[in-house]
Design a protein around this nucleic acid. Structure first.
Ligand code: NAD
Ligand code: NAD
Lengths: 242, 242
DNA sequence: TTCGCATTGTGATTTGTTTCACATGGAATG
DNA sequence: CATTCCATGTGAAACAAATCACAATGCGAA
C-alpha cells in the first residue's frame, strides 16, 4: 500500500462519482470492469488505484459500493471543514465561485479577494469579498488552506506570495505564470489557452492523417477507445484498420 | 525527429510565451537554461522538446529567438484560419468565449450554440449564438474543426455526438462526463472539480507532513523547485532538510 | 460437497517519458 | 593559430506509470 500518485488521486474521484451513480441506481456491488468502463480506464488500473485505499473487494462479488465510497471519501476528501479562497472576481473567478459553492460537504470557499474597490465588502454568491490587502489576515483568521488564483497573469506571483505567507498549502492556478513557491506547497496549473492550442493541434493532425489514409469520406466508426482522458497521449490510434 | 507527445506540445507553447517575452526585451539569442528556468523544467527537457521541431541552435550562441519562435508557431499553431465553436453559454462558456476571442492569429471562435431560446441569434462578444439544433449545419458550413463543451454534464455526450457527426476533430470538454468518441477524435478533459479536490488533498497532506516533521512554525524557505507544473507528481520534496 | 468459473490482488513486464552524460563544435581569447 | 570554454544534440540509462498475467479466492451450480 504505497502512496497515491497525482493521477491516482484524480481517478479516485472519478470512481467515486461513478459509484455514487451506481448507488443511486440501487447497486450494492461493482466489479472493477464496470468502474473501468465508467471512468474510461482499464480494469487493472482500477484495481491498482483501489489498492492504495487499503480496501479489498472479494472475488466473485467485486467491491461493495457503499464501503468503497466511504473509503474513497475517507482517503481523498477532507474529514473536517477545509477552507478555500479565490483571488480575482473576474470572468473565471466568478464562474468558479458559483460552481464550487456548496459542492463538497467539507470543502468551502469562504472568502474572495479583489484589488478593485468596487467589489470590496460585497457578498458574492454568499461569500464575502475582501481587499487583497487584508488577505493575509483573513486567511489566517479563517484557517484557509487552499487558494484559487484567478487574477491577471502579472499579479499571480504577488498574490501567490501573499497566499503562501499566510499559510496556504495548495494553489489552483489559472494564470499562465509558472509560480515560484516554497517546497511543500502544492501547485496545480490550469492553462486553458494551452489546452485549446493543443486541442487545435491534434484536431488538425487528425484531419491531416484522415486525408492521408482514407480514400474518401469514410465514416468514422464508433470505437469507444478513441478519446483521451485529459493528461494522456492523443488517440493516435489508426482508424478503421480493416 | 520523432512525433511530439501530448506533453511536449504543451511545453512548446510555454517556451513560445517565454520567447515572446525575451523578444520584447530585445534578446536575440537564448540558451536552453534560460528557457528551462522560465518554463520550470530542466534544460535537457527543453532541448529534447526542441528536437521535434527540426530546428537546431548553435553551441555558444544557443537558440536564435526569432527563428525558434517561428518554428514553434509553424509546428503548433495553425498556418491558416482554423475555427472553433463553444456549446453552452453559461458561466464558463461565456468566460471562455470572452477570453479566447482574438487571442491567436489563426484560431477563432466563430460560433456558439445554446439550448436556451433566450440566447439564440444574439451576438455575444462578436460571436453569433445559434440553436444547438442547427449546430451540424453551421459547423459544416463554417468548416469548424474544434469544439468546446461547456454544457451541463448530462448534455455533454449528446452535443459531442453532434459535434463529431458534423466533422469536429478536437474537443475541449469541461463537463465531467467521460465522452465516447470515435478513434481519431482528440478529447481533452478539464475537470475543475477534480482539480480542486486534488489541490485540497495535497494541501492537507502538506499540512500533515509539516506538523509531523517540523518542530514548530519553521518558516518555509523559498526553494523554487517546490511547485508542481500541472500534470506532474506533487512536490513530495522533503522540506528544509538541514 | 465438489467443481468450475469469474474476479481479485499483485509480481513481473512493458511502455512512455525524463534525465544523464558525453562527443561535437563554434566563438572568444591570448 | 591554438586552446579553452560552454552549450548543443542525442544515445543510453533511469525512472514512472500502465498493463499483463496468473495464483489465490470464494461463490453458486450440480
Ligand atoms: N476568463 C477565462 O476564460 C480565462 C481562461 C484562461 C485563463 N484565464 C486566466 O485567468 C486569469 C484571470 O482571467 P479573467 O478572464 O477572469 O480576468 P479578469 O480581468 O476578468 O479578472 C481578473 C480580476 O482580478 C482582479 N485583480 C487584479 N489584480 C488583483 C490583485 N492583485 N488581487 C486580487 N484581485 C486582483 C481584477 O480586479 C479582476 O476583477 C488570467 O490570468 C487569465 O490568463 C482566464
Ligand atoms: N462554471 C464553472 O466554473 C465550472 C467548473 C467546472 C466544471 N463546469 C462544468 O461545465 C459545464 C457547464 O457549467 P456552467 O457552470 O457553465 O453551467 P451553466 O448552467 O451556467 O451553463 C450551461 C449552459 O448550457 C446551455 N445548454 C444546456 N443544454 C444545452 C444543449 N443541449 N446545447 C447547448 N447548450 C445547452 C444552458 O442553456 C446553459 O446556458 C458543466 O458540465 C459543469 O460541470 C463548470
Amino acid at each position: 500500500m504505497n502512496r497515491a500518485s497525482y493521477r491516482t488521486i484524480g481517478r479516485l474521484t472519478h470512481y467515486w462519482r461513478a459509484l455514487r451513480d451506481l448507488e443511486a441506481e440501487g447497486q450494492t456491488y461493482a466489479y472493477s470492469h464496470l468502474l473501468a468502463a465508467k471512468a474510461q480506464v482499464t480494469a487493472a488500473q482500477v484495481r491498482r488505484d483501489i489498492m492504495v485505499l487499503g480496501y479489498s473487494g472479494t472475488p466473485a462479488r467485486g467491491y461493495e459500493v457503499r464501503r468503497l465510497v466511504e473509503c474513497i471519501e475517507a482517503y481523498v476528501f477532507p474529514s473536517s471543514e477545509q477552507r478555500a479562497a479565490i483571488a480575482g472576481m473576474g470572468n473565471i473567478g466568478l464562474a468558479l465561485l458559483k460552481f464550487f459553492t456548496g459542492r463538497r460537504p467539507n470543502l468551502h470557499v469562504t472568502a474572495s479577494f479583489e484589488a478593485d474597490p468596487e467589489k470590496f465588502d460585497r457578498l458574492i454568491y454568499g461569500c464575502r469579498c475582501y481587499s487583497i490587502d487584508s488577505a493575509g489576515e483573513v486567511i489566517r483568521r479563517e484557517g484557509i488552506s487552499v487558494g484559487i488564483l484567478a487574477v491577471p497573469d502579472a499579479e499571480a506571483q504577488y498574490v501567490a506570495d501573499v497566499f503562501v505567507a499566510a499559510g496556504i498549502r495548495g494553489i489552483l492556478n489559472f494564470a499562465r505564470t509558472p509560480l515560484e513557491v516554497p517546497a511543500g506547497v502544492y501547485v496545480e496549473n490550469i492553462d486553458l489557452a494551452m489546452s485549446l492550442d493543443r486541442v487545435a493541434f491534434f484536431a488538425r493532425q487528425s484531419l491531416k492523417t484522415e486525408r492521408a489514409v482514407l480514400p474518401a469520406g469514410t465514416p468514422l466508426d464508433k470505437a469507444s477507445a478513441g478519446g483521451t482522458p485529459s493528461d494522456e497521449a492523443p488517440s493516435a490510434n489508426k482508424e478503421s484498420e480493416s
